[in-house]
Design a protein around this nucleic acid. Structure first.
Lengths: 237, 237, 237, 237
DNA sequence: AATGAATGAGGTTTCATTCAT
DNA sequence: CATGAATGAAACCTCATTCAT
């Protein structure tokens, strides 16, 4: 590649730059006031662009939200899926991995996560284009499949409903994040986030894995003391 | 006494009857389309009354939602609080009691629960009157207090953040209910609901109570099979 | 007359009593908020009667105002007319009589006068039933006739337009009263009212009666003839 | 420079052009139907613009009226003030100047004057933002000050209340204009207007300037008491 | 006669979307 | 690309009037 970009490339970059500015602004405003509570004018003002420019890049307000969601959600889901469907991993590792993905997303962009939680996870059925609601439900179903498979291999207590397990996991993660988003948790330092993530994963696992104390838990307890080796379980160093 | 009520009584009943009809309709419509997605006209049509009558009983749309929420939420919260602050109960009993309250509310009036979940639990901070958002957060804080006290008596693992525990519990319950609300769970029979409630409470407790299996769990296990011991489980690599 | 009234008389009195209560309330509320600024509910509340009763006695809101005006205005006008058309009186006596009538009306019922000023004297042409606007204009015309006759007898300067004289007189009276109504005049004692009445009548008469030209008038007349040097007095060339 | 304006200038003109069009339309419609009697739709139709554009330039209906009033009134008042406070002028010149200003305003824009008279001068106190009513009263007070100063220099009869004089002057002018506005005066030619202006100013001055008592006044005085020597006069007891 | 709940037309206001420059 | 004025449908809310009791 030459150091100078071709004209169209430059334009393309310029365009996508503007586009991204607007998208960014939309996320911020949606996070602050909600989709219904904000006007296109708010997004434009936040982005520092002219009113009409929003319509240059997005067909309408709904597409704007759609794009926000897709952008934020698709990466999230694909990372989630990668973790959940990596058959090389134990269920425990997968669960910890999912928690990692969620909390990492929050660390990187809490506003975007807030929008996803507010506008995607919840919102009346009829209101929106199918995809939005579907996206969330599909993710839960994916997790449910994961749990169902785990039951097949004896990694999950057989008496639990896999769908319910999936709901519990996401419920725990979501309200855990909500606690941060809403200000219920006063300490929002990276360490606090990490602690929360571990407690959530660990409590969930303790609750659903077969047997008494899980090895994971044992390991985790040990980790506190020494340097607990653990097979590729997410990002923990 | 005669079978007819006195005039004022009849009027009083009539009034509150109408009022309740409208409130009921509002719950239904909010549940179906969300607060923003519905028009006063929808509520009026659903209630079978004239447009303006809604404004006879409620100052404006917002007060209507406020009333819906207050009505539904206050009963819910007070029952919740009664359970959580009954010091005669063990933590386990309290947690099960809270699950009972939530699922019973859903059984009695799923629509109302849906509205509470959609419009109260989540919704951008600045938008609403304090009370709505506050109500939800206060409930979580109440549960957090409960868990903190339980740590004092050794009923809860000392290494867990009480606030996080509260979030987990409500997250599990909420997304468990959401699974029903959203149609993720196909079987919505009372039995299925009950099963879900038990699984949620039990998994949560298993996850957060100190020690190995809880007494409840032990009982439950026995009830199910006989020897469900599984060899330390761990991970199949 | 017997001391007891017949039943129908009693009823009639009761009725007119209620009716008068409502009329009274309407005057007060109209005076306070204006016709457009008040609701039937305000009138009912002020009168201490039920909402619908207003409609029992008056066909609609407009008729209510109409009645207020008629009641207040007709007495006013007939007294005015009696003074203006009493050919036994000099013009001066008539003018003073008109001022008497107006200020007496104000003394007796300042609110009613306020309503008459606000809602009758002024108000866009098309808006109202003819009668209201007409009533006011007719009164001015009546006074104009009076002035025209006075010109015939030499009691009024021949160079003045009678219609304009009428306007001036009522303008002076009206804004004089307005000064009291609006609070511009701090002293609202009966004595102050009387003083104002006399000053108004006297100044008006001094201005319009024939007789020795005042120095000011003389100067002005001269200007017309010669080149009236006047120290930069506005736009006159 | 080219004959074409720069873009921003053009835009600026365009904007204020539209704004002025709407303001103009509002004046016309208010004059025709009154503030309460007209709908925003009427203003928009009159201006030949879309419904919503009115709200692009004015926050709401009330601000529209407010702006109409301010625009029309402020120029009027400042011109009035210039005349009233020009100490190089005699009282007589000032009074004539004020009449000039008022009638000139009417000649230039009778509709606007009508609105000012209808919606500003009179209208219930509580209804409006302070400024509107205040503006009118302040103007009267300004004139009252002028008259008070004139009493200090002996230019005005000492026995008159300055505030009342101001009321008389504006009452005369206002109802004089009303006579034209309302159609009482059939001849509305510039000459007729001029004639009216002169008669008003002259009659007023004749009435309030010191100087030889008119015969009428003399007669009246005699009738009342006996020794009505005037000079210092003060308030009659 | 008296009450006040019920009705619904009519007005205001908002704001997504289009369009001319 | 960029701008922001212009558009108008759609929602909210008010309140005069009617009606059942």
């Amino acid at each position: 590649m030459s150091q100078r970009q071709s004209k169209s490339e430059a334009a393309g970059n310029r365009e996508s730059e503007r586009r991204r500015t607007i998208l960014r602004a939309a996320i911020d405003v949606f996070a602050r006031k909600g989709y219904h509570g904000c006007r296109i004018a708010d997004v434009a003002r936040e982005a520092g662009v002219a009113y009409g420019l929003v319509y240059h890049y997005f067909k309408n307000k709904d597409e704007l939200l759609e794009t926000v969601v897709e952008t934020g959600w698709s990466g999230f889901v694909s990372r989630m899926r990668a973790v959940a469907e990596d058959e090389g991993n134990s269920l425990e590792a997968k669960v910890r991995g999912i928690a990692d993905v969620a909390f990492e997303a929050y660390r990187v962009d809490p506003r975007a996560v807030k929008v996803l939680i507010l506008e995607v996870a919840r919102s009346p059925a009829g209101t929106q284009v199918v995809s939005r609601q579907q996206a969330f439900l599909d993710t839960i179903r994916m997790a449910a499949d994961m749990f169902a498979r785990a039951q097949g291999t004896g990694e999950l207590r057989a008496d639990l409903d896999p769908m319910l397990c999936a709901s519990l996991l996401f419920g725990a993660i979501e309200l855990g994040l909500t606690a941060f988003v809403s200000g219920l948790m006063e300490d929002r330092s990276p360490e606090a986030l990490d602690r929360a993530k571990l407690q959530i994963a660990e409590s969930f696992l303790r609750g659903v894995l077969p047997g008494a104390a899980t090895s994971a838990e044992a390991a985790w307890k040990q980790e506190k003391v020494s340097s607990g080796t653990r097979p590729k379980a997410g990002k923990r160093s």
